[in-house]
Design a protein around this nucleic acid. Sequence first.
RNA 1: GCCGCCGUAGCUCAGCCAGGUAGAGCAGCGGGCUGUUAACCCGUUGGUCGUCGGUUCGAAUCCGACCGGCGGCGCCA
Length: 436
Amino acid sequence: MSGAVWWKNVEKVTDIFRSKPIGRTVTVRGWIHRISRVGGVAFIGIRDGSGYIQISLKRSEKPELFKLVDKLNIEDVIAVRGIIVEDKRAPGGLEVRAHDLEIISKSGVWPITRSAVKSPGFLFDNRHLWIRSPKVRSVLKVRAEVCRLIREYMDMNGFIEFHAPIFVKSACEGGATLFPVDYFGDKVYLTQSAQLYQEAAIAAFGKVYTLGPCFRAEKSRTRKHLTEFWQVECEMAFADLEEDMKTLEDLSAYICRGIAERCEEELSILGVDFKPPTTPLPRITYTEALEIARGKGSETIWGEDFSSRDEALISSVFDKPFFVTHYPASTRSFYHMLDPYDPRVTLSFDLIAPEGYGELATGGQRISDYDTLLRRIAEQELRKETLSWYTELRMYGCPPHSGFGMGIERLVRWICRLPSVRMAIPFPRTPDRVEP
RNA sequence: GCCGCCGUAGCUCAGCCAGGUAGAGCAGCGGGCUGUUAACCCGUUGGUCGUCGGUUCGAAUCCGACCGGCGGCGCCA
Protein backbone atom coordinates (compact mmCIF):
# COMPACT_ATOMS: atom_id res chain seq x y z
CA MET A 1 0.00 0.00 0.00
CA SER A 2 1.51 3.32 -1.04
CA GLY A 3 0.18 6.71 -2.03
CA ALA A 4 -3.46 7.23 -2.82
CA VAL A 5 -5.68 4.20 -2.54
CA TRP A 6 -7.63 3.14 -5.60
CA TRP A 7 -10.44 1.48 -3.66
CA LYS A 8 -12.16 4.56 -2.24
CA ASN A 9 -14.85 4.80 -4.90
CA VAL A 10 -16.57 1.45 -4.95
CA GLU A 11 -19.82 -0.18 -6.03
CA LYS A 12 -22.14 -1.77 -3.55
CA VAL A 13 -22.70 -5.43 -4.37
CA THR A 14 -26.49 -5.09 -4.18
CA ASP A 15 -26.30 -2.24 -6.71
CA ILE A 16 -24.26 -4.42 -9.07
CA PHE A 17 -26.88 -7.16 -8.98
CA ARG A 18 -29.63 -4.56 -9.42
CA SER A 19 -28.15 -2.72 -12.41
CA LYS A 20 -26.12 -5.62 -13.91
CA PRO A 21 -23.41 -3.46 -15.54
CA ILE A 22 -22.15 -6.26 -17.81
CA GLY A 23 -18.79 -5.47 -19.37
CA ARG A 24 -18.09 -2.47 -17.15
CA THR A 25 -15.08 -2.18 -14.85
CA VAL A 26 -16.09 -1.90 -11.21
CA THR A 27 -14.35 -1.77 -7.85
CA VAL A 28 -15.70 -3.73 -4.91
CA ARG A 29 -14.34 -4.33 -1.46
CA GLY A 30 -15.30 -6.58 1.41
CA TRP A 31 -14.54 -9.55 3.60
CA ILE A 32 -13.54 -12.88 2.05
CA HIS A 33 -16.23 -15.43 2.74
CA ARG A 34 -14.94 -18.29 0.63
CA ILE A 35 -11.85 -19.16 -1.37
CA SER A 36 -11.52 -22.05 -3.78
CA ARG A 37 -8.85 -22.88 -6.27
CA VAL A 38 -9.10 -25.39 -9.06
CA GLY A 39 -5.74 -25.55 -10.77
CA GLY A 40 -5.32 -22.32 -12.64
CA VAL A 41 -8.67 -20.74 -11.74
CA ALA A 42 -9.41 -19.20 -8.39
CA PHE A 43 -12.72 -18.06 -6.94
CA ILE A 44 -13.07 -15.64 -4.07
CA GLY A 45 -16.47 -14.89 -2.60
CA ILE A 46 -16.69 -11.56 -0.85
CA ARG A 47 -19.25 -9.98 1.41
CA ASP A 48 -19.44 -6.19 1.49
CA GLY A 49 -22.24 -5.70 4.01
CA SER A 50 -24.83 -5.22 1.29
CA GLY A 51 -24.47 -8.54 -0.51
CA TYR A 52 -22.24 -11.33 -1.76
CA ILE A 53 -20.39 -11.61 -5.06
CA GLN A 54 -17.82 -13.96 -6.58
CA ILE A 55 -14.45 -12.83 -7.90
CA SER A 56 -12.73 -15.06 -10.46
CA LEU A 57 -9.10 -15.03 -11.42
CA LYS A 58 -7.12 -17.09 -14.00
CA ARG A 59 -3.43 -17.88 -13.73
CA SER A 60 -3.03 -17.63 -17.50
CA GLU A 61 -4.41 -14.08 -17.52
CA LYS A 62 -3.03 -12.57 -14.30
CA PRO A 63 -0.04 -14.67 -13.13
CA GLU A 64 1.19 -12.18 -10.45
CA LEU A 65 -2.25 -11.63 -8.96
CA PHE A 66 -2.86 -15.36 -9.01
CA LYS A 67 0.11 -15.92 -6.68
CA LEU A 68 -1.58 -13.65 -4.16
CA VAL A 69 -4.53 -16.04 -3.88
CA ASP A 70 -2.47 -18.58 -1.93
CA LYS A 71 -1.78 -15.92 0.69
CA LEU A 72 -5.42 -15.07 1.26
CA ASN A 73 -7.39 -16.11 4.35
CA ILE A 74 -11.09 -16.28 5.03
CA GLU A 75 -12.18 -12.85 6.40
CA ASP A 76 -9.26 -10.93 4.92
CA VAL A 77 -10.57 -7.59 3.75
CA ILE A 78 -9.71 -7.01 0.10
CA ALA A 79 -10.44 -4.58 -2.68
CA VAL A 80 -10.86 -5.82 -6.23
CA ARG A 81 -11.15 -4.04 -9.54
CA GLY A 82 -12.38 -5.99 -12.51
CA ILE A 83 -14.94 -6.50 -15.23
CA ILE A 84 -18.48 -7.63 -14.51
CA VAL A 85 -19.36 -10.67 -16.59
CA GLU A 86 -22.45 -12.79 -16.79
CA ASP A 87 -21.80 -16.47 -15.97
CA LYS A 88 -24.38 -19.08 -15.08
CA ARG A 89 -21.79 -20.91 -12.97
CA ALA A 90 -21.34 -17.96 -10.61
CA PRO A 91 -23.65 -17.54 -7.60
CA GLY A 92 -26.30 -15.05 -8.64
CA GLY A 93 -25.24 -15.31 -12.29
CA LEU A 94 -22.64 -12.49 -12.16
CA GLU A 95 -19.01 -12.34 -11.21
CA VAL A 96 -16.06 -9.96 -11.23
CA ARG A 97 -13.05 -10.96 -13.40
CA ALA A 98 -10.27 -9.40 -11.36
CA HIS A 99 -7.62 -7.09 -12.83
CA ASP A 100 -6.35 -5.71 -9.53
CA LEU A 101 -6.53 -7.06 -6.02
CA GLU A 102 -5.24 -5.53 -2.82
CA ILE A 103 -5.33 -6.79 0.74
CA ILE A 104 -6.67 -4.01 2.95
CA SER A 105 -6.63 -5.96 6.22
CA LYS A 106 -5.40 -9.45 7.04
CA SER A 107 -7.44 -11.91 9.07
CA GLY A 108 -6.29 -14.63 11.41
CA VAL A 109 -7.49 -18.20 10.86
CA TRP A 110 -11.26 -18.02 10.96
CA PRO A 111 -12.53 -20.15 13.88
CA ILE A 112 -16.06 -20.69 12.61
CA THR A 113 -15.70 -23.81 10.52
CA ARG A 114 -18.21 -26.27 9.18
CA SER A 115 -18.09 -28.42 12.29
CA ALA A 116 -18.35 -25.39 14.61
CA VAL A 117 -21.82 -24.77 13.24
CA LYS A 118 -22.96 -27.82 15.21
CA SER A 119 -21.83 -26.31 18.50
CA PRO A 120 -24.16 -23.64 19.96
CA GLY A 121 -21.90 -23.07 22.96
CA PHE A 122 -18.89 -22.35 20.77
CA LEU A 123 -20.92 -20.19 18.42
CA PHE A 124 -22.31 -18.05 21.25
CA ASP A 125 -18.80 -17.76 22.74
CA ASN A 126 -17.85 -16.38 19.34
CA ARG A 127 -21.04 -14.41 18.73
CA HIS A 128 -18.96 -11.32 17.84
CA LEU A 129 -17.62 -13.26 14.86
CA TRP A 130 -20.58 -15.55 14.19
CA ILE A 131 -22.68 -12.45 13.53
CA ARG A 132 -21.06 -12.29 10.06
CA SER A 133 -22.52 -15.61 8.93
CA PRO A 134 -25.37 -15.56 6.39
CA LYS A 135 -27.92 -17.10 8.76
CA VAL A 136 -27.23 -14.82 11.69
CA ARG A 137 -27.20 -11.85 9.31
CA SER A 138 -30.57 -12.93 7.96
CA VAL A 139 -32.17 -13.30 11.39
CA LEU A 140 -30.88 -9.92 12.51
CA LYS A 141 -32.07 -8.38 9.26
CA VAL A 142 -35.55 -9.77 9.90
CA ARG A 143 -35.36 -8.40 13.43
CA ALA A 144 -34.43 -4.95 12.15
CA GLU A 145 -37.25 -5.12 9.62
CA VAL A 146 -39.74 -6.19 12.30
CA CYS A 147 -38.78 -3.08 14.30
CA ARG A 148 -39.05 -0.86 11.22
CA LEU A 149 -42.52 -2.29 10.49
CA ILE A 150 -43.61 -1.70 14.09
CA ARG A 151 -42.57 1.95 13.87
CA GLU A 152 -44.25 2.33 10.49
CA TYR A 153 -47.53 0.91 11.74
CA MET A 154 -47.50 2.85 14.99
CA ASP A 155 -46.54 6.13 13.34
CA MET A 156 -49.24 5.71 10.68
CA ASN A 157 -51.90 4.97 13.29
CA GLY A 158 -51.59 7.95 15.55
CA PHE A 159 -49.18 6.64 18.17
CA ILE A 160 -46.35 8.81 19.52
CA GLU A 161 -43.05 7.09 20.25
CA PHE A 162 -42.44 7.50 23.96
CA HIS A 163 -39.20 6.75 25.80
CA ALA A 164 -39.72 5.41 29.29
CA PRO A 165 -36.89 5.37 31.84
CA ILE A 166 -34.63 2.35 32.28
CA PHE A 167 -33.76 3.10 35.94
CA VAL A 168 -36.90 2.63 38.01
CA LYS A 169 -37.89 2.38 41.65
CA SER A 170 -40.89 0.09 41.38
CA ALA A 171 -41.81 -3.27 39.94
CA CYS A 172 -44.45 -3.54 37.21
CA GLU A 173 -45.09 -7.22 37.43
CA GLY A 174 -45.89 -8.82 40.75
CA GLY A 175 -43.36 -11.45 41.70
CA ALA A 176 -41.04 -10.89 38.78
CA THR A 177 -37.53 -10.20 39.98
CA LEU A 178 -35.67 -6.99 39.29
CA PHE A 179 -31.99 -6.30 38.65
CA PRO A 180 -30.76 -3.97 41.38
CA VAL A 181 -28.38 -1.17 40.40
CA ASP A 182 -26.38 1.05 42.71
CA TYR A 183 -27.54 4.59 42.04
CA PHE A 184 -25.20 6.90 43.99
CA GLY A 185 -25.75 4.78 47.07
CA ASP A 186 -29.46 4.44 46.46
CA LYS A 187 -30.97 1.17 45.21
CA VAL A 188 -32.81 1.35 41.92
CA TYR A 189 -33.70 -1.31 39.35
CA LEU A 190 -33.58 -1.90 35.61
CA THR A 191 -37.02 -1.59 34.09
CA GLN A 192 -39.21 -4.61 33.42
CA SER A 193 -41.71 -2.72 31.31
CA ALA A 194 -42.56 0.77 30.12
CA GLN A 195 -46.26 0.28 30.79
CA LEU A 196 -46.66 2.27 34.01
CA TYR A 197 -44.95 5.28 32.42
CA GLN A 198 -47.02 4.89 29.28
CA GLU A 199 -50.15 5.16 31.40
CA ALA A 200 -48.89 8.57 32.48
CA ALA A 201 -48.11 9.50 28.88
CA ILE A 202 -51.53 8.77 27.39
CA ALA A 203 -52.99 11.76 29.22
CA ALA A 204 -50.59 13.88 27.17
CA PHE A 205 -50.64 12.05 23.83
CA GLY A 206 -53.66 9.76 23.73
CA LYS A 207 -51.75 6.86 22.19
CA VAL A 208 -48.09 6.02 22.78
CA TYR A 209 -45.67 3.21 22.01
CA THR A 210 -42.26 2.20 23.29
CA LEU A 211 -39.77 -0.08 21.57
CA GLY A 212 -36.91 -0.86 23.87
CA PRO A 213 -35.10 -3.21 26.22
CA CYS A 214 -36.53 -4.75 29.38
CA PHE A 215 -34.80 -6.71 32.11
CA ARG A 216 -35.95 -9.62 34.22
CA ALA A 217 -33.69 -11.16 36.86
CA GLU A 218 -35.23 -14.61 36.60
CA LYS A 219 -33.03 -17.68 36.31
CA SER A 220 -35.18 -19.05 33.54
CA ARG A 221 -33.32 -21.79 31.73
CA THR A 222 -35.50 -22.15 28.69
CA ARG A 223 -35.39 -21.34 25.02
CA LYS A 224 -37.95 -18.57 25.35
CA HIS A 225 -36.36 -16.44 28.05
CA LEU A 226 -33.62 -13.82 28.12
CA THR A 227 -32.64 -11.62 31.04
CA GLU A 228 -32.42 -8.68 28.62
CA PHE A 229 -35.04 -8.62 25.90
CA TRP A 230 -36.85 -6.10 23.73
CA GLN A 231 -40.52 -5.49 23.47
CA VAL A 232 -42.90 -3.12 21.79
CA GLU A 233 -45.44 -1.79 24.23
CA CYS A 234 -48.32 0.53 23.57
CA GLU A 235 -51.01 2.21 25.58
CA MET A 236 -54.22 3.82 24.35
CA ALA A 237 -56.58 6.16 26.18
CA PHE A 238 -60.27 5.25 25.80
CA ALA A 239 -59.47 1.83 24.31
CA ASP A 240 -61.34 -1.17 25.64
CA LEU A 241 -60.32 -4.81 25.44
CA GLU A 242 -61.77 -5.20 21.95
CA GLU A 243 -59.92 -2.19 20.51
CA ASP A 244 -56.73 -3.36 22.21
CA MET A 245 -56.90 -6.80 20.64
CA LYS A 246 -57.81 -5.35 17.26
CA THR A 247 -54.76 -3.10 17.38
CA LEU A 248 -52.44 -6.00 18.20
CA GLU A 249 -54.06 -8.11 15.48
CA ASP A 250 -53.60 -5.36 12.87
CA LEU A 251 -50.04 -4.68 13.99
CA SER A 252 -49.13 -8.39 13.81
CA ALA A 253 -50.70 -8.72 10.38
CA TYR A 254 -48.82 -5.64 9.16
CA ILE A 255 -45.51 -7.02 10.45
CA CYS A 256 -46.07 -10.49 8.98
CA ARG A 257 -47.09 -9.18 5.55
CA GLY A 258 -44.15 -6.79 5.55
CA ILE A 259 -41.66 -9.50 6.45
CA ALA A 260 -43.00 -11.85 3.77
CA GLU A 261 -42.64 -9.06 1.18
CA ARG A 262 -39.35 -7.49 2.23
CA CYS A 263 -37.36 -10.41 3.62
CA GLU A 264 -37.82 -13.04 0.95
CA GLU A 265 -34.07 -13.54 0.54
CA GLU A 266 -33.41 -13.74 4.30
CA LEU A 267 -36.24 -16.23 4.85
CA SER A 268 -34.92 -18.36 2.02
CA ILE A 269 -31.38 -18.35 3.48
CA LEU A 270 -32.97 -19.53 6.72
CA GLY A 271 -34.93 -22.19 4.86
CA VAL A 272 -38.20 -20.84 6.22
CA ASP A 273 -41.45 -20.96 4.31
CA PHE A 274 -43.21 -18.12 6.10
CA LYS A 275 -46.84 -17.50 5.21
CA PRO A 276 -48.38 -14.43 6.87
CA PRO A 277 -51.41 -15.62 8.85
CA THR A 278 -54.78 -14.47 7.62
CA THR A 279 -56.92 -12.37 9.97
CA PRO A 280 -59.00 -12.41 12.04
CA LEU A 281 -56.93 -14.48 14.42
CA PRO A 282 -58.82 -17.08 16.45
CA ARG A 283 -60.03 -16.03 19.91
CA ILE A 284 -60.93 -18.29 22.81
CA THR A 285 -61.48 -17.54 26.45
CA TYR A 286 -59.31 -18.85 29.24
CA THR A 287 -62.16 -21.14 30.27
CA GLU A 288 -62.44 -22.59 26.75
CA ALA A 289 -58.68 -23.00 26.53
CA LEU A 290 -58.69 -24.81 29.86
CA GLU A 291 -61.33 -27.23 28.53
CA ILE A 292 -59.13 -27.97 25.51
CA ALA A 293 -56.13 -28.65 27.77
CA ARG A 294 -58.11 -30.79 30.21
CA GLY A 295 -59.68 -32.67 27.30
CA LYS A 296 -56.11 -33.61 26.30
CA GLY A 297 -55.12 -34.81 29.75
CA SER A 298 -54.19 -31.68 31.69
CA GLU A 299 -54.90 -31.62 35.42
CA THR A 300 -54.85 -27.84 35.67
CA ILE A 301 -57.84 -26.46 37.55
CA TRP A 302 -59.75 -23.21 36.90
CA GLY A 303 -57.91 -20.25 38.39
CA GLU A 304 -54.42 -21.64 37.85
CA ASP A 305 -52.22 -20.34 35.07
CA PHE A 306 -51.45 -22.65 32.16
CA SER A 307 -48.31 -24.74 32.38
CA SER A 308 -45.96 -25.06 29.40
CA ARG A 309 -47.56 -28.38 28.66
CA ASP A 310 -51.06 -26.86 28.76
CA GLU A 311 -49.92 -24.16 26.39
CA ALA A 312 -48.54 -26.76 23.98
CA LEU A 313 -51.76 -28.78 24.15
CA ILE A 314 -53.89 -25.72 23.46
CA SER A 315 -51.69 -24.39 20.68
CA SER A 316 -51.74 -27.75 18.87
CA VAL A 317 -55.35 -26.96 17.92
CA PHE A 318 -54.29 -23.87 15.94
CA ASP A 319 -52.10 -23.28 12.90
CA LYS A 320 -51.66 -19.54 13.45
CA PRO A 321 -51.30 -17.22 16.44
CA PHE A 322 -54.43 -17.05 18.58
CA PHE A 323 -55.82 -15.02 21.44
CA VAL A 324 -56.69 -16.42 24.83
CA THR A 325 -58.85 -13.90 26.72
CA HIS A 326 -60.39 -13.29 30.13
CA TYR A 327 -57.74 -14.82 32.39
CA PRO A 328 -58.70 -15.26 36.05
CA ALA A 329 -57.64 -12.39 38.28
CA SER A 330 -55.46 -14.82 40.24
CA THR A 331 -53.16 -15.27 37.23
CA ARG A 332 -52.69 -11.59 36.37
CA SER A 333 -50.82 -8.55 37.66
CA PHE A 334 -52.43 -5.98 39.95
CA TYR A 335 -53.30 -3.39 37.28
CA HIS A 336 -55.63 -5.60 35.20
CA MET A 337 -59.27 -4.53 35.12
CA LEU A 338 -61.85 -7.04 36.27
CA ASP A 339 -64.67 -7.96 33.89
CA PRO A 340 -67.80 -6.14 35.12
CA TYR A 341 -69.92 -9.07 33.89
CA ASP A 342 -67.79 -11.70 35.63
CA PRO A 343 -65.44 -10.25 38.27
CA ARG A 344 -63.61 -13.54 38.63
CA VAL A 345 -61.83 -12.80 35.34
CA THR A 346 -59.85 -9.89 33.92
CA LEU A 347 -60.23 -7.96 30.67
CA SER A 348 -56.94 -9.39 29.46
CA PHE A 349 -55.44 -11.56 26.77
CA ASP A 350 -52.34 -13.38 25.62
CA LEU A 351 -51.36 -13.83 21.99
CA ILE A 352 -49.93 -17.32 21.65
CA ALA A 353 -47.95 -18.63 18.69
CA PRO A 354 -48.69 -22.10 17.28
CA GLU A 355 -46.28 -25.06 17.19
CA GLY A 356 -45.06 -24.54 20.74
CA TYR A 357 -43.40 -21.17 20.18
CA GLY A 358 -45.38 -19.86 23.14
CA GLU A 359 -46.57 -16.46 24.25
CA LEU A 360 -45.83 -13.60 21.90
CA ALA A 361 -47.75 -10.82 23.61
CA THR A 362 -49.81 -9.94 26.64
CA GLY A 363 -52.27 -7.12 27.15
CA GLY A 364 -55.54 -5.89 28.48
CA GLN A 365 -57.56 -3.11 29.96
CA ARG A 366 -56.12 -1.34 33.02
CA ILE A 367 -57.83 -0.36 36.24
CA SER A 368 -58.91 3.30 36.00
CA ASP A 369 -60.47 3.59 39.43
CA TYR A 370 -58.27 4.74 42.32
CA ASP A 371 -59.83 2.67 45.12
CA THR A 372 -60.00 -0.50 43.06
CA LEU A 373 -56.33 -0.13 42.13
CA LEU A 374 -55.28 0.41 45.76
CA ARG A 375 -57.26 -2.66 46.80
CA ARG A 376 -55.55 -4.81 44.15
CA ILE A 377 -52.11 -3.53 45.19
CA ALA A 378 -52.92 -4.47 48.78
CA GLU A 379 -54.23 -7.90 47.77
CA GLN A 380 -51.02 -8.69 45.90
CA GLU A 381 -48.96 -7.37 48.83
CA LEU A 382 -46.98 -4.88 46.76
CA ARG A 383 -45.17 -1.87 48.20
CA LYS A 384 -47.57 0.94 47.46
CA GLU A 385 -45.12 3.76 48.33
CA THR A 386 -43.09 3.39 45.16
CA LEU A 387 -46.29 3.14 43.13
CA SER A 388 -47.83 6.32 44.55
CA TRP A 389 -47.14 8.35 41.42
CA TYR A 390 -48.82 5.60 39.39
CA THR A 391 -51.94 5.36 41.53
CA GLU A 392 -52.14 9.16 41.60
CA LEU A 393 -52.79 9.12 37.84
CA ARG A 394 -56.29 7.88 38.77
CA MET A 395 -56.98 11.17 40.59
CA TYR A 396 -56.31 13.49 37.64
CA GLY A 397 -58.55 12.34 34.81
CA CYS A 398 -58.18 8.65 34.02
CA PRO A 399 -60.43 7.34 31.27
CA PRO A 400 -60.69 3.65 30.39
CA HIS A 401 -57.43 2.61 28.77
CA SER A 402 -55.70 -0.48 27.46
CA GLY A 403 -52.41 -1.63 26.08
CA PHE A 404 -50.17 -4.57 25.35
CA GLY A 405 -46.56 -5.68 25.13
CA MET A 406 -45.13 -7.94 22.45
CA GLY A 407 -41.73 -9.63 22.74
CA ILE A 408 -39.48 -8.86 19.78
CA GLU A 409 -37.28 -11.95 20.15
CA ARG A 410 -40.28 -14.24 20.54
CA LEU A 411 -41.87 -12.81 17.43
CA VAL A 412 -38.64 -13.06 15.43
CA ARG A 413 -38.10 -16.58 16.75
CA TRP A 414 -41.54 -17.64 15.57
CA ILE A 415 -41.22 -15.96 12.14
CA CYS A 416 -37.77 -17.45 11.54
CA ARG A 417 -38.60 -20.77 13.24
CA LEU A 418 -35.54 -20.51 15.47
CA PRO A 419 -34.76 -23.09 18.15
CA SER A 420 -34.22 -20.38 20.76
CA VAL A 421 -34.86 -16.67 21.38
CA ARG A 422 -31.12 -16.40 21.93
CA MET A 423 -30.67 -16.53 18.17
CA ALA A 424 -33.10 -13.63 17.70
CA ILE A 425 -30.99 -10.94 19.43
CA PRO A 426 -27.45 -9.84 18.48
CA PHE A 427 -25.80 -10.52 21.84
CA PRO A 428 -28.07 -12.61 24.08
CA ARG A 429 -28.02 -12.31 27.85
CA THR A 430 -29.13 -15.30 29.90
CA PRO A 431 -28.48 -16.32 33.51
CA ASP A 432 -25.34 -18.11 32.32
CA ARG A 433 -24.14 -15.76 29.61
CA VAL A 434 -23.33 -12.06 29.57
CA GLU A 435 -20.38 -12.28 27.16
CA PRO A 436 -19.48 -11.36 24.52
C1' G B 1 -35.31 -22.11 42.88
C1' C B 2 -35.78 -27.61 41.42
C1' C B 3 -34.43 -31.88 38.14
C1' G B 4 -31.46 -34.07 34.22
C1' C B 5 -27.35 -34.28 30.54
C1' C B 6 -22.48 -32.95 28.68
C1' G B 7 -17.01 -31.39 29.15
C1' U B 8 -10.96 -35.72 24.96
C1' A B 9 -6.72 -31.43 19.13
C1' G B 10 -9.06 -24.66 16.88
C1' C B 11 -14.24 -27.35 15.77
C1' U B 12 -17.34 -32.10 15.68
C1' C B 13 -16.76 -36.68 17.88
C1' A B 14 -14.76 -42.06 18.96
C1' G B 15 -12.05 -44.30 23.07
C1' C B 16 -14.62 -44.79 29.25
C1' C B 17 -19.08 -49.91 30.56
C1' A B 18 -14.77 -54.68 31.56
C1' G B 19 -7.99 -49.13 34.18
C1' G B 20 -2.03 -50.47 30.85
C1' U B 21 0.25 -42.95 29.13
C1' A B 22 -4.86 -41.14 22.92
C1' G B 23 -7.63 -41.80 17.42
C1' A B 24 -10.81 -40.07 13.11
C1' G B 25 -13.23 -36.21 10.15
C1' C B 26 -13.11 -30.93 9.40
C1' A B 27 -9.97 -26.52 9.98
C1' G B 28 -4.46 -25.31 9.56
C1' C B 29 0.24 -26.28 6.93
C1' G B 30 2.94 -28.51 2.19
C1' G B 31 1.96 -30.36 -2.80
C1' G B 32 -1.43 -31.35 -7.21
C1' C B 33 -5.63 -30.05 -10.22
C1' U B 34 -8.32 -24.20 -15.65
C1' G B 35 -15.22 -23.41 -13.21
C1' U B 36 -15.35 -23.92 -7.65
C1' U B 37 -20.61 -23.60 -5.10
C1' A B 38 -19.96 -27.99 1.92
C1' A B 39 -14.90 -29.01 -4.41
C1' C B 40 -11.59 -33.13 -4.93
C1' C B 41 -6.73 -36.08 -4.51
C1' C B 42 -1.81 -37.01 -1.88
C1' G B 43 1.07 -35.82 2.43
C1' U B 44 1.42 -33.50 7.37
C1' U B 45 1.52 -30.38 12.24
C1' G B 46 -1.42 -30.32 16.43
C1' G B 47 -3.81 -32.90 22.87
C1' U B 48 -0.59 -31.40 30.95
C1' C B 49 -8.25 -35.89 28.09
C1' G B 50 -12.53 -28.99 32.28
C1' U B 51 -10.07 -28.33 37.44
C1' C B 52 -8.65 -30.24 42.12
C1' G B 53 -8.46 -34.37 45.19
C1' G B 54 -9.10 -39.83 46.15
C1' U B 55 -8.62 -45.34 44.90
C1' U B 56 -4.63 -48.06 42.28
C1' C B 57 1.86 -50.54 40.76
C1' G B 58 -0.73 -47.68 36.90
C1' A B 59 -6.57 -43.20 35.69
C1' A B 60 -9.22 -39.98 29.64
C1' U B 61 -11.40 -44.56 31.81
C1' C B 62 -13.46 -45.90 38.70
C1' C B 63 -15.07 -42.42 43.10
C1' G B 64 -15.86 -37.33 45.21
C1' A B 65 -15.98 -32.06 45.09
C1' C B 66 -15.79 -27.81 42.24
C1' C B 67 -16.00 -24.90 37.61
C1' G B 68 -18.14 -24.19 32.81
C1' G B 69 -22.05 -25.11 29.27
C1' C B 70 -26.78 -27.30 27.53
C1' G B 71 -31.93 -28.97 28.20
C1' G B 72 -36.66 -29.43 31.02
C1' C B 73 -39.93 -27.47 35.00
C1' G B 74 -41.49 -23.10 37.55
C1' C B 75 -41.86 -17.82 36.04
C1' C B 76 -42.91 -14.87 31.97
C1' A B 77 -42.27 -10.91 26.59
